[in-house]
Amino acid sequence: MPDDAYSPIPELNLLKEFDDRCEESYAPWAWLDDFRELPFLRDTPELMRGLIGFASANLSGSLYALWKRDDRDDLATLPVVLLGDEGGLHLVARDLREFFRLLAGLEAGLACDWDDVYERDEEELPGRADYHAWLVDNFGLTPPEDAWDIIEAAEEELGKEWAEWIHPLLPDAVFSPVHELNLLKRFQDSTEGSYAGGFSLLSAEDREDWDGDPGLLPFADANEDYDTYALMPHDERADSAGQPVVVVGDDDEHHVVARNIREFLGALDGLEIHVTDDGVALRDCEPNPAHAEYLDWLDEHFGLAPARDAAAVIRAAERAYPGRTPVS
Rank of each mutant, 00 (worst) to 15 (best):
V246N: 09
N58I: 00
W148D: 04
F302R: 05
I273T: 12
E123Q: 15
N288I: 01
L110Y: 06
L102P: 11
D278H: 11
R49V: 00
G212W: 03
A147I: 00
V81R: 06
A305C: 11
L110K: 11
L14F: 07
P287M: 08
A307D: 13
E224I: 08
L271H: 13
A154R: 00
C285M: 11
G266I: 00
E263Y: 04
G105N: 10
G303T: 06
A5F: 06
G323C: 08
F35M: 05
A311P: 06
L202K: 00
G270M: 04
L41N: 07
H234F: 11
F40D: 15
D137S: 06
R42Q: 15
F100V: 12
A241Y: 01
A258S: 10
A129M: 06
P28V: 02
L96S: 12
L201H: 05
D116P: 09
H291E: 13
G53C: 03
E318L: 09
R42Y: 08
E272H: 07
P289T: 01
V80M: 07
D85P: 10
G159A: 00
P168C: 01
S62G: 10
D206P: 03
V246H: 08
L59G: 15
V92M: 09
E124A: 15
Y195I: 01
H132W: 08
R259A: 14
Q188F: 02
D20Y: 08
E86L: 10
L12A: 09
N223E: 07
Y294I: 02
D269M: 05
T77R: 15
D250T: 15
G193D: 00
A133K: 13
L89D: 08
A307M: 08
L202I: 01
P244D: 05
G249E: 02
E145F: 00
I314Q: 12
A290C: 10
Y131N: 08
E208N: 10
L201E: 02
T191A: 05
A258H: 04
F187A: 03
D34P: 08
N223D: 13
V247Q: 07
G249Y: 02
L183T: 04
W297T: 06
P306H: 07
G140N: 02
A30P: 06
L12T: 03
R207C: 07
A147L: 01
N223G: 09
D251Q: 09
L41K: 07
S200K: 13
D227E: 03
L96A: 12
N138V: 03
A222E: 03
E98S: 15
D113E: 12
D116N: 14
D221T: 11
R262F: 07
L38H: 11
R283E: 15
D278T: 11
E224G: 14
L83Q: 10
F219R: 05
V248I: 05
S203G: 12
N13C: 12
G249R: 09
E318G: 13
A147D: 01
D149S: 02
V92E: 11
A320D: 11
A305L: 14
L78Y: 08
I150D: 01
V80I: 05
A312N: 10
D73I: 06
D115W: 07
L265K: 08
Q243V: 07
L91D: 11
T44C: 14
E152F: 02
I9T: 04
A129G: 10
E152Q: 02
L14P: 07
R308G: 15
H179C: 05
L295N: 11
R319C: 11
G323F: 01
A241G: 15
N58K: 00
W31P: 09
G50P: 04
Y131T: 03
G270A: 07
T228R: 13
